[in-house]
């Protein structure tokens, strides 16, 4: 595999895990615009643990994901007091606070960034991304996943169905925190260098868009969104600003034409082999 392709694949794996981290909360109806903040904590934690504290690579990654899971759990309580635009603002503020903190903390290199002396290979990223993808498909198939989707559709009716909405949303934030942190840890250990400026508001915006454009109703959504926005431009060698320009136009058009995302629940049910073969059966539709 060429170095170029390997680089593209590495970015894809990291972005996919990142996107799933944002997807978990979005699937339960919460928009998290502070993704970069969570990812930064994971990256710096793993980088510092592996570099400065001398932990083994696997332990650093695990610990980093645990730390961001805890951050997700803790931030969920204040964040869930807010709704809609206010939640967008609260999570956005969280991202800015983390970025500001890292930029001004000398232990982590401040504005100079931090070199991470240890390294994980591409196969680890591929393995992790595959595992996370399968995990997400599993989660969406469970009753917990069903409750998340119900909340996304109609939170008030879910309450009256006996769903503990708050607990489900807290769980979503915690899992989301773990996944975004994992993506950050892998980023730090694969690239060997982290700087606070990378984890800016635009990064949070981009990853949220992968998820919302991909679709929040099924676990296919983030996969479709991430492939669409990180693999396709690379394959067609569209670079620089033109790539982002097309990205922006696609977003506006998608919102106008297909606001529920590329992959919707209805699309999956139309494409499922069972239904394709079942048409013409006794029940029909």
């Amino acid at each position: 595999m060429s170095g170029y392709l390997a680089g593209v694949l590495a970015i894809f794996c990291i972005n996919l895990i990142f996107a799933y981290g944002i997807f978990v909360t979005a699937a339960a109806g919460q928009i998290n615009l502070g993704g970069a903040g969570f990812q930064a904590i994971g990256a710096y934690a793993a980088g510092w643990l592996a570099g400065q504290a001398g932990l083994p690579i696997a332990a650093s990654i695990m610990t980093a994901a645990l730390i961001t899971a805890l951050v997700g759990l803790l931030i969920s309580f204040p964040a869930l007091r807010t709704r809609g635009v206010y939640m967008v603002l609260a999570t956005f503020a969280f991202g800015e606070v983390v970025a500001g903190f890292l930029l001004h903390t000398d232990v982590f290199g401040g504005a100079m960034g931090m070199v991470v002396p240890l390294h994980v290979d591409l196969w680890v990223l591929v393995l992790a991304a595959t595992f996370v993808t399968l995990l997400m498909f599993f989660l969406m198939a469970t009753r917990l996943g069903l409750a998340m989707r119900a909340i996304n559709d109609d939170e008030d009716a879910s309450v009256v169905m006996g769903v503990n909405v708050r607990a489900v949303q807290v769980a979503a934030f915690t899992i989301g925190g773990a996944l975004t942190g994992l993506s950050g840890a892998l980023y730090a250990l694969n690239f060997g260098f982290v700087e606070a400026q990378y984890f800016n508001a635009l990064l949070s915006i981009y990853v949220l868009l992968y998820v919302l454009i991909g679709g929040t109703q099924t676990a296919w959504g983030p996969l479709a969104g991430t492939v669409f926005f990180t693999m396709l431009p690379e394959l067609f060698r569209v670079g620089g600003s033109a790539r982002y320009l097309i990205f922006g136009i696609v977003i506006v058009l998608m919102m106008a034409l297909r606001p529920e995302g590329i992959v919707t629940r209805a699309l999956i049910s139309r494409l499922s082999p069972r239904r394709l073969f079942a048409t013409g059966g006794a029940r029909g539709n």
């Binding site: 915006i205 949220l208 868009l209 454009i213 922006g248 977003i251 506006v252």
Partner: peptide, 9 residues
């Protein structure tokens, strides 16, 4: 989301 798209455009 549309406005984020326009921001990028």
């Amino acid at each position: 989301v549309s406005s984020l798209g326009f921001l990028i455009i």
